[in-house]
Design a protein around this nucleic acid. Structure first.
Lengths: 253, 253
DNA sequence: AAGTGGTCTAGACCACGTA
DNA sequence: ACGTGGTCTAGACCACTTA
């Protein structure tokens, strides 16, 4: 074979480990199955635990593994396709899609970026409605829906007690508005401790931040910031929720 | 002050470090400014370098920092808002939006998931068009556009030499088709070494995978898998047509 | 109490960009 | 040649779940 170039740039161990594990997951493991613990895996592959963890972290990021402290590492099911709505000009939760009201309260401090999105002056009253998106008993997303008091006339009349009831009342008022349109953006973020708890993840876990602006003819009526678990969710736009698109949709060159 | 509960569950060091750094970034640093190197920062905060890196990693994930081997760590500009199209029924690249053809070639091996998306039988010829999305001299995304030969009649007549010319020729044929619709999904992934190189990132870097299916009345005409840099990109969906979010929409609670 | 993953340390060496 | 971030090691202890 002569001087076959092995690798001018040797692949890092954790990357090689990742592909080895990935293939093993496809061949030798079923969904939900528990992997050997990290110390044993590290020993079996002859690497330090930290190196093994680097591989596991990426596999978890890609939704192939699920790790829970005190329990173990399991093979994750394919990602859930979560519809985040196409061009439907409607408030989410009008149809049955898993949004559960949690609470509603006046929000005192708003980030400058959010104020700009809302188009409100600092100091103007803004209501924050908390909702959770639940599917199959799993919390997929936590949402904060910011509603300037000025955009909903009937808001001051609400006297429901704190908790889901009040959130529902605000949503009812909101849904009376005729929507003119919406725009959305998606970006990567890390879960704040608050959201992390609700999503059953550790703080800093990767999340998909979906920011939606709702318009009426009068202008911005509300802004929603939804925090989706990045490990388990695939956001879908349109009507192809049934089709599976997983990591291996890409050609393994 | 009595018995003020400090923290029943003490915050991990790297999280505290992250918030401290985050505040420092807002107050004491300008976009593009170079931070002290990791060894010095770690010493300054009295932690091990690995712990400091854990904090830096999350800040980079959130698009606040940019780290380059051999260079240093700099303060990142706000994320770019990248339009990935609303419900417009058009091929991307028809208007001027930064897509640059790279190459086109027959793709031999296709993953089962991709075959299912395309709706083609294994063995059927599928062309793969490579494109890059470039903005301000920066590669934001790498795309693979899979086109079954059956969906484009004029495909076999193409005899352009390999490279951008051939890719352009395929795109021209494709754009003759009348689109009936499309659906899209977004999920988190990690960059394959191949894409990583094109995106000027390390392998495994977090990316946003945008999978789009293009329909004609005859069925699925093509499937695009676009790999966006998650650190620098905020994907926008302009459902309301005219409106563009041009500023930083990040919500830092 | 035992076992799991999560955090943290204090080193070492490597790959890369720049001067 | 030097300084940077990236990889890797071999430990230790902690937080959490389950039995």
């Amino acid at each position: 074979m002569g001087t076959m170039q092995l690798e001018s740039v040797p692949e890092p161990k954790y990357l090689h480990l990742k592909t080895v594990l990935s293939e093993a997951l496809d061949q030798d493991f079923a969904v939900g199955e528990i992997l050997p613990n990290e110390r044993e895996l590290a020993a079996r592959f002859g690497v330090a635990r930290a190196t093994l963890r680097q591989a596991l972290e990426q596999l978890e990021l890609e939704g192939r593994l699920q790790r829970r402290r005190g329990v173990g590492t399991t093979v994750a099911p394919p990602r859930v396709g979560v519809d985040v709505g196409g061009a439907q000009h409607s408030w989410p939760g009008e149809s049955v899609d898993g949004w559960e009201p949690v609470d509603a309260a006046e929000e005192a401090v708003l980030s400058p970026a959010l104020l700009k999105l809302l188009g409100t002056a600092p100091g103007e009253m803004v209501l924050a409605v908390r909702r959770s998106r639940v599917e199959n008993g799993q919390v997929l997303a936590a949402e904060l829906l910011y509603v300037p008091a000025s955009s909903v006339p009937g808001l001051s009349a609400i006297d429901a007690p704190a908790g889901p009831a009040r959130a529902r009342a605000v949503m009812r008022e909101l849904q009376k508005l005729v929507l003119d349109g919406q725009d959305r953006s998606v970006e990567l973020g890390s879960a704040r401790p608050e959201d992390a708890k609700e999503l059953d993840r550790l703080p800093g876990a990767p999340v998909l931040l979906v920011t939606t602006r709702y318009f009426t003819v009068a202008g911005t009526a509300a802004v929603s910031v939804a925090t989706y678990r990045a490990d388990t969710c695939r956001l879908t736009f349109g009507d192809s929720g049934d089709v599976q698109i997983t990591h291996d949709a890409r050609v393994a060159s």
